[in-house]
Simulated scan of single mutants.
Amino acid sequence: MSLFKREDQQARADRIRDDLHDIGEQGQALGRDLRDDAQDAIEEARIKSEEQYSRMAVDARRRNRRFKRSANQSLNNCDRYVREHPWSSIGVATLTGAIVGLLISRR
């Protein structure tokens, strides 16, 4: 082998080594970029979920207050009706108990 061929082979080997090194660095840079993008996406998703949770919590509290108000109003109306019409209330309760008893006994 001549001296020139060895130098050419060495130069090609050096270029290949440099190319592989560059590919490795590019892969690492790509990995860092992907990691950073993923962290940004995760942070954005966390912020959105916290905002949605806050909205849902406010809505749930509002609905809970509305339900309690409605339940209290219904309870007061029922109590008032029973006090104003005690005998008809006793009759309805007796009839309801009899119907439930019949349905249960058929099983």
Rank of each mutant, 00 (worst) to 15 (best):
K5M: 10
K5I: 14
R6C: 00
R6Q: 07
E7V: 12
Q9L: 09
Q9E: 15
Q10D: 14
A11H: 14
A11M: 14
R12W: 07
R12K: 15
R12E: 10
R12C: 07
A13P: 00
A13R: 15
D14Y: 08
D14H: 10
I16C: 03
I16P: 01
R17C: 07
R17E: 07
D19K: 07
L20T: 13
L20G: 06
L20C: 08
L20R: 14
L20V: 12
H21C: 10
I23R: 13
E25F: 05
E25D: 15
Q26P: 00
Q26C: 12
G27W: 01
Q28S: 03
A29N: 05
A29S: 14
L30V: 06
L30R: 10
L30S: 14
G31C: 05
R32K: 12
R32H: 09
R32T: 09
D33S: 06
D33K: 05
D33L: 09
L34H: 10
L34F: 05
L34C: 04
D37F: 06
A38F: 08
Q39W: 03
D40P: 03
D40C: 04
I42C: 03
E44R: 02
E44H: 02
E44N: 04
A45P: 02
R46V: 06
R46F: 01
R46S: 10
I47S: 08
I47D: 10
I47M: 03
K48V: 08
S49K: 06
S49Q: 12
S49V: 06
E50L: 13
E50H: 05
E50Y: 04
E50S: 09
E51I: 08
Q52K: 12
Y53Q: 06
Y53R: 13
S54Q: 13
S54I: 03
S54N: 04
M56C: 09
A57P: 04
A57R: 14
V58N: 09
V58K: 04
D59L: 07
D59S: 08
R62L: 07
R62A: 13
R63T: 08
R63Y: 02
R63K: 15
N64K: 02
N64V: 03
R65I: 13
R65N: 10
R65A: 12
R66T: 11
K68G: 07
K68F: 11
R69F: 03
R69N: 13
S70Y: 05
N72L: 06
Q73M: 10
S74H: 11
N76L: 06
N77F: 09
C78N: 13
D79R: 08
D79Y: 05
D79E: 12
R80N: 02
Y81V: 02
V82G: 04
R83A: 14
R83W: 00
R83F: 01
E84P: 01
H85E: 08
P86S: 02
W87P: 03
S89L: 02
S89V: 07
S89H: 02
S89A: 14
S89D: 08
I90F: 09
I90M: 04
G91P: 01
V92C: 00
A93S: 06
A93M: 02
A93V: 11
A93T: 11
T94I: 15
T94P: 04
T94C: 02
T96F: 11
